[in-house]
Design a protein around this nucleic acid. Sequence first.
RNA 1: GGGGCCGUAGCUCAGUGGUUAGAGCAGGGGACUCAUAAUCCCUGGGUCGUGGGUUCGAUCCCCACCGGCCCUACCA
Length: 512
Amino acid sequence: MAKYYITTPIYYVNDAPHVGHAYCTVNADAMARWHRLAGDEVKFLTGTDEHGQKVADAAAKNGVSPREWTDQTSRRFREAWDALNISYDDFIRTTEARHYETVQKFLTAVYENGYIYKDVYQGLYCVSCEDYYTLESSDEGRCPIHGRALTEMAEENWFFRLSAFAEPLLKYYEEHPGFVTPETKRNEALSFIKGGLRDISITRTSIAWGVPVPWDEDHVFYVWYDALINYLTAIGYGRGEDETGAWWPVSHHLIGKEILRFHCVWWPAMCMAAGLEPVSHVQVHGWLLVGGQKLSKTMAAEGGVKLTDIAPVVLTDEFGVDPVRYYLLRETALGNDGDFSHEGITARYNTDLANNLGNLVARVTTIVAAKCAGRGPTPEASGELADAAAAAVAETRAAWERFAPQHALESTWGLIGATNAYLERHAPWKMEPGEPLETVLGNALEAIRLVAIMATPALPQVCAEIWRRIGLEGAPDDQVFDEGARWGQYRAVTEIVKGEPLFPRIKVDAPR
RNA sequence: GGGGCCGUAGCUCAGUGGUUAGAGCAGGGGACUCAUAAUCCCUGGGUCGUGGGUUCGAUCCCCACCGGCCCUACCA
């Protein structure tokens, strides 16, 4: 059994969970579900990043300890993911003891390997960013992000010798062409490395809310530096239950494009410095950009709505959990920026879900109920629809394997279209009861069964419901893909259920 | 300032150094009536951002420009 380890970034607790987080997390979830379906042993990790000055400040402002504060804020992410039916296996918090232990072990290894040294950092500091700027990168002495005046500061820090890894990184990229996907993002990372790497300051003395540096207790590690290591914490690196050998280095980080440098430059260099092989694959996704006229009624007033202002629950309340998941997975090719709009999600809902999938299930279950006494007939062993199904299964499988949920779903929907067309050609509603009719309906039911399996990584609840309606026991995600998705296995166990529409159509206002 | 990405049909996007550049949605025509006014069939002359260059030939390669976006060391 193959192992599959996939991670999202750990989200910064001071942010409220928004659609951007959901986009990344849903994609990772679909991949995790796909691999479970494919029969792999899966570890799906997400979590929260809880250190740093901003968190400490927020806690103080709210009159609670940082620990209490992060307990509250971290919980919001868990709740958001539970609401989206995210099947994470582990939820890591960087304030956990296991994380401290792994970070200290990891960085001690880097230190002992000679890649960490002490120096004085002098620069212009922004308290909000908790970071330094050079004069050039500042906005005339003001922070380019916060606009506030930068203060001249000097701090004795520990530094990571990133500059030593330019050559090893280039070599690693060369020997691992699939390390960063898509290729355009790989090129960005490469050109950054080729542009020269500076050593980075990785500790702070000014704050206490962080992981202590084991060999110098006055310092804590800079948040990003401890955050990246979470991926190893979850598999027990440096601790008693160390499973690094089982899950590493063949693993997958799904990240947004804005944190490409941390994951594609810093992180592999850090691993090398610790004597560890870097992660084998970083999949970079783009950003959803808000388009359309109205995202939701409650936000229309604001004018420039940002994606990061939208809580996932606003969407799931309106469209349902699985439709939101479907939209996030289907609309945009992973790696590209996508267009996110109320019109877009409505269109996907009505066309793909209501008209194509929902209606197919409705028409077939209705005819079976009327003409077969509610008991689904068995499909034929081969034929036109079987051929279409085999093609869709192969394409869907290949697309999931190459981290392309959009194409996987497109291929799956190809079978839905083929089945609707098949029904038109044979018009079972005109046929008298008998074997020819049973064959047509058995084939249609079998196609629906396969669709339920193929789409379950995206629509787990709906596919389970379809499974039940067509008279099967269990759920599609109990299947092992290569076995279960082979044509010809549909056998009715229970009566067909017509049921209410799976996706009631959404009324659309006439175009203005 | 430096680095990078993008600009293709009304909309969202694929795509390739070479005969007539594709898909989905929307739109138009037809069929059907089992189904959520759904489904099925037919229907796409768009200067492939602009201007140059390389080439026998470029939408795809190079340069410049215009427009949008991202990173520049803590927003998925």
